[in-house]
Design a binder for these strands. Sequence first.
DNA 1: AATAAATTTAGAATAATTCTAAAAAGAGAA
DNA 2: TTCTCTTTTTAGAATTATTCTAAATTTATT
Lengths: 128, 128
Amino acid sequence: MTKYEKQIYEIVNSSQSHLTAEQVFSELKKVYPAVSQATVYNNLNKLYGAGRIRRVSVEGSPDRYDRTVKHDHLVCRRCGRLTDVCLEDLTDSLKRQLGGEFFSYDLKIFYICPECREKEAQNPARQQ
Amino acid sequence: MTKYEKQIYEIVNSSQSHLTAEQVFSELKKVYPAVSQATVYNNLNKLYGAGRIRRVSVEGSPDRYDRTVKHDHLVCRRCGRLTDVCLEDLTDSLKRQLGGEFFSYDLKIFYICPECREKEAQNPARQQ
DNA sequence: AATAAATTTAGAATAATTCTAAAAAGAGAA
DNA sequence: TTCTCTTTTTAGAATTATTCTAAATTTATT
């Protein structure tokens, strides 16, 4: 583990907020101002490949990197914002249904976040 | 609904295989050879916004467009291939846990597909 | 120290998607 | 019809996210 890999792991795992590669990059620059973008991508891929961080893709926005600690995501269909939520674990149920092992699962729930719902209530015309 | 929108809807909804925008484009060109790429993106976004097709994002590969008919996805951690699978419906359970309504949910299960497992068994060195 | 292997770097390249502004197509209303 | 208005399409440029490349640097091994 290089110092960069270690630091990137720290950044992702101590953040509550599923960072984009760009955001990890700017956090890392606070510690190592000369680091390059490619190093961030290299190490995020390495950590993800090793299962030490989670990668979450959201339709229409860059991938995010997240702690591996079990949790699910609410995704706003209007603004795309991600919110953590902790729901009943599905591992056993999925194992039973699939009849075999798997790495992990990713559950996203699409909704309208309170902010966007508020906006739409004020201006119903722009509703989709 | 324009002829393009209608045709794109048909293409996505009659395919079994979560097409990329690129793939939808080449299907559409079979019917309307002069159509442009932007039309495909415009209409996919429109149909998705209206909830008439599903959009599935997979880490590290372009978004895919899919029938809205309820099903879940297995994602191979090695080759990225998507496979449809039909698991127990979570709607009621999620409503209860979240205490409210939502649009839809998306469940992806990460595993190693039979082909990649086979390859790894033959050449264990390259295992990650 | 010398050699080899892995990592980092800057910048170019690629890929997916959106944007732009003009052209074309539809859809009423006169 | 013809005029006007709105929507959609188009080609190509622009943007964004990410990967690739090849040289330089760092780390590990002999």
